[in-house]
Design a protein around this nucleic acid. Structure first.
Lengths: 344, 344
DNA sequence: CTGAAAGCGCTTACAG
DNA sequence: CTGAAAGCGCTTACAG
């Protein structure tokens, strides 16, 4: 308080936060009354409106903020909902994070998201940390080992739900990857129904064959070729990983001349494909991409993109948080196909 | 435990999480010993390695996870660091979120990020909520009213730091928007040093004139024109807002013929510019954009992008969390200019 | 080398 | 209409 102080004091005095005891003293009432006024249960306790007003005013004046740690410790439910996700910095996961927070808040829940870089160990540690934070429910988004997390949650009495990638030990909400991929493949094949290209198979590039979503998308890719009666040689399926560089390398190594149409399995992969195209301007092709990005949509040669229905998936997730669903439940949400101009 | 139970029981019995008391009983020791073994202070307490091992083993077997709410309540510092940010779903904010989490974790802090949609009220409520969660420090990223948050934090004894947009009541870390904009403008002007376009001013589009960053970028835009001796008419500066549609409308309304070069103030604005271009293919122009996006970088006509140094900014932020910096401090971090192909 | 005890700031039956 | 009291699960001086 000594504004002219020039002594050796190193730390600012951290003004102690007021507690309900401080407020009770200032209001000339009891901590119980303050607590119930501040947490909204005062009507049930039949506290007079006059006292409630007085307490609220004092709380406001003092800049009171409840100590949620103490509150949660005492309560049965924390009203905290946790989510782990692999990355923030692409449009799909960014949209999930943003909408998840909005939906949680609309339900009076406090959302805590943490991002785990697709590293299985970090994923599990993050899950453990969120359980330590007393989350009522944990959403595992795109987790590499969702079942391990579900088991840990179950042991701790915490509900868990899988999003984007399915698991077998908790209910799962995923895109209908098969239908989305099939429809995108159809779009591409129709494009090449012109006499010159007719009957040519496409090239599938990107993702991991071991991952459920990529496997489903390959299945859809194959189904559309079958519909069109176009034979699909196995070398036309290149699940070379997600990194952009992997896609460039795979295209460099592709033995024969490149097909006229590419099914690109993610926007990350697409970055590599486009870089390869820049190095090989003579090899014209068009492409479609599984996942949406507004700038990628503007690229020449882009025939269509598959936008996953983030809002639909999250609505289902929140529906599941409110019910006791079977771990076997696997909800598939249809994707949205965005038809684009093409013309590489 | 009755696996064959078929009675009317509606709720699963939520297995009560083990506490240090449970572990102490199982290990035949005291809760204090368990606590110190689990939180790593056991060496200081000279607890035998044998007992420590036994306790750790039992904790593992029981799937013990500390109750952080209880732990934080008792401790002086929470080791929680909070961040509010406007959006997740663009590359700039996505990168900030991702790197912020990684850096926090590396320092043994628990990061909690919450996204506030550029809504001042939500922003303040989120800040209050994070203070309730006992954050030791709050980072306000791109906040519309950082000073209100800083004041609230100060009253609660919580340190705060501004990122991306500066404030006057807490130390700030922002990009050197002036120099970044000046350099990008130079890049564009050099491009048009060819006889045909020589002496033509550029068009600045997007952002809000009231916001510090946009004002600084306009200043840099003007400075580069002055350097080149090119007069800049005021109508060539269009801070029409951030939304893509606003940019489209502004270009539609632009009175005279469009300049050959555009300074686009954000990737959001760029979406609108590109849509306008698609509707007006005859009006050729090249552009530069403040902010980085890997797909936007691939667009034809893109002469260069300004990438903000997220890693550099965050390093500075964490440096500031460890010191008692003046609220007047305003650190400017240089941007990275990405020169691109151009040729719309 | 180890334990008993106080207390962090709340919430909520319980008793007027 | 209101308050005293117990207790959530920890941590940490303090006392052996």
């Amino acid at each position: 308080m000594d504004t002219g102080g020039s002594d050796g004091q190193k730390e600012k005095i951290s003004p102690k936060r007021p507690t309900i005891y401080d407020l009770a003293e200032l209001a000339g009432t009891s901590p119980s009354a303050v607590s119930s006024v501040l947490n909204g249960t005062w009507k049930k306790r039949r506290i007079s409106e006059k006292l409630a007003k007085r307490i609220s005013k004092i709380a406001e004046e003092q800049g009171y903020a409840v100590n949620i740690q103490a509150s949660v410790l005492r309560r049965v439910r924390s009203n905290i909902i946790g989510m782990i996700m692999p990355k923030y910095d692409n449009r799909y996961f960014g949209a999930i994070a943003e909408q998840f927070e909005a939906l949680a808040r609309a339900r009076g829940l406090f959302p805590v998201i943490t991002c785990t870089q697709r590293e299985p160990e970090l994923e599990f540690e993050a899950a453990r940390e969120l359980v330590s934070y007393q989350v009522d429910c944990l959403i595992s988004t795109g987790a590499t080992d969702p079942d391990r997390i579900s088991e840990f949650c179950a042991a701790a009495g915490v509900r868990s739900i899988n999003l984007d990638l399915p698991g077998s030990k908790a209910p799962s909400v995923v895109s209908d990857n098969f239908a989305g991929a099939r429809d995108l493949t159809r779009l591409l094949l129709q494009r090449f129904a012109a006499p010159a290209a007719e009957g040519q198979p496409l090239l599938f590039i990107g993702g991991r064959g071991s991952d459920h979503n990529t496997a489903e998308r390959i299945r859809g890719f194959e189904a559309a070729h079958a519909e069109f009666g176009i034979p699909l040689p196995p070398e036309n399926i290149l699940p070379c990983g997600y990194a952009a560089q992997k896609a460039e390398d795979a295209l460099d190594a592709f033995p024969s001349s490149l097909p006229a149409g590419l099914f690109v399995n993610s926007t990350i992969t697409l970055e590599g494909v486009i870089r390869w195209q820049a190095r090989n301007p003579s090899r014209a092709f068009e492409f479609g991409c599984f996942d949406w990005d507004p700038f990628a949509a503007l690229l020449p040669g882009n025939v269509g993109m598959v936008q996953q229905d983030v809002a639909g998936m999250l609505a289902k997730v929140f529906e599941l948080t409110a019910t006791e669903a079977s771990p076997d439940l696997n909800v598939e949400i249809p994707c949205i196909i965005k038809r684009l101009g093409g013309q590489g």
